[in-house]
Write a protein that binds this DNA or RNA. Structure first.
Length: 177
DNA sequence: CTTTGGATCGTCT
DNA sequence: GACGATCCAAAGG
C-alpha cells in the first residue's frame, strides 16, 4: 500500500489492497497449487495475474516464501503518470476515477494481463513491472475493513486503503459505510 | 445516488 | 456443469 506501480509509461500510487492467505477460504491458494494459481506459490516479489468472470484480469503481489501461497491483490491505484494511455485503454470513461478505481480496471489501464503472470517485480526491460518505494508518508494512516466481492472468509478485516482517496474502489464491504 | 441483470469463459468439480 | 478476488449500462428514486 502507498507504493508506486510502474508499467511502461504508466505510474500510479497503490491506494487499496487486500491480503489473501493459504488457509483463507476466499483465497485462490486455499485448495493448493493448480495451473492457474501456480505463481502464488512461487517466489515473493513476483506478480500473480489471474483471469476472472470470462473477461477481466486482476493482479497480485506474491508475498510469502516459495511454496507458501499468500498474495496481496491490487484493488485501486491513483494515477501519477500516463493517464493519457490509461484513458485510451479504458475507452475514455466520463469520470477520471473510473480509470483505475477497481482491480480489473487498473489492470486494463496499465496493460496488465496473463502475459505478465509471474514476472519479477524487481526485473527490468520491456516486460518490466516495478514496485517502487517513494519513501512517502501518507497524509492519513491506512484504514482497514473486510474484503470486497468474496463469499467466504468475509469476516477477515484484510482490506487496507488510504481513507479519502478518490480512487479507492466503489465496492463496499459488508459492515462498512 | 442505488439496484439489477447481463456479459463471457477459464478453471476446477 | 457451476461459479467466480468484476464491470457496465439501464432503470428508478
Amino acid at each position: 500500500l502507498d507504493k508506486l506501480l510502474v508499467v511502461g509509461p504508466c505510474r500510479g500510487r497503490i491506494v487499496e489492497v487486500e491480503a489473501y492467505e493459504p488457509d483463507d477460504p476466499a483465497s485462490h491458494a486455499y485448495r493448493g497449487p493448480s495451473r492457474r494459481n501456480r505463481s502464488m506459490f512461487g517466489p515473493p516479489g513476483h506478480l500473480y495475474v489471474y483471469f476472472t468472470y470470462g473477461m477481466h484480469w486482476c493482479a497480485n503481489v506474491v508475498c510469502g516464501p516459495v511454496g507458501h501461497g499468500s498474495a496481496v491483490l491490487l484493488r485501486a491505484v491513483s494515477p501519477v503518470a500516463g493517464a493519457q494511455v490509461m484513458a485510451e485503454r479504458r475507452g475514455h470513461p466520463a469520470r477520471a476515477v473510473d480509470l483505475t478505481n477497481g482491480p480489473a480496471k487498473l489492470c486494463q489501464a496499465f496493460g496488465i494481463d496473463g502475459q505478465l503472470d509471474g514476472v519479477d517485480l524487481a526485473g527490468r526491460g520491456p516486460r518490466a513491472v516495478e514496485l517502487r518505494d517513494e519513501g512517502r508518508t501518507p497524509f492519513e494512516p491506512a484504514r482497514r475493513s473486510t474484503r470486497i466481492g468474496i463469499s467466504a472468509g468475509t469476516e477477515k478485516p484484510w482490506r487496507w486503503y488510504l481513507p479519502g482517496d478518490p480512487y479507492v474502489s466503489p465496492g463496499r464491504p459488508s459492515g462498512e459505510r
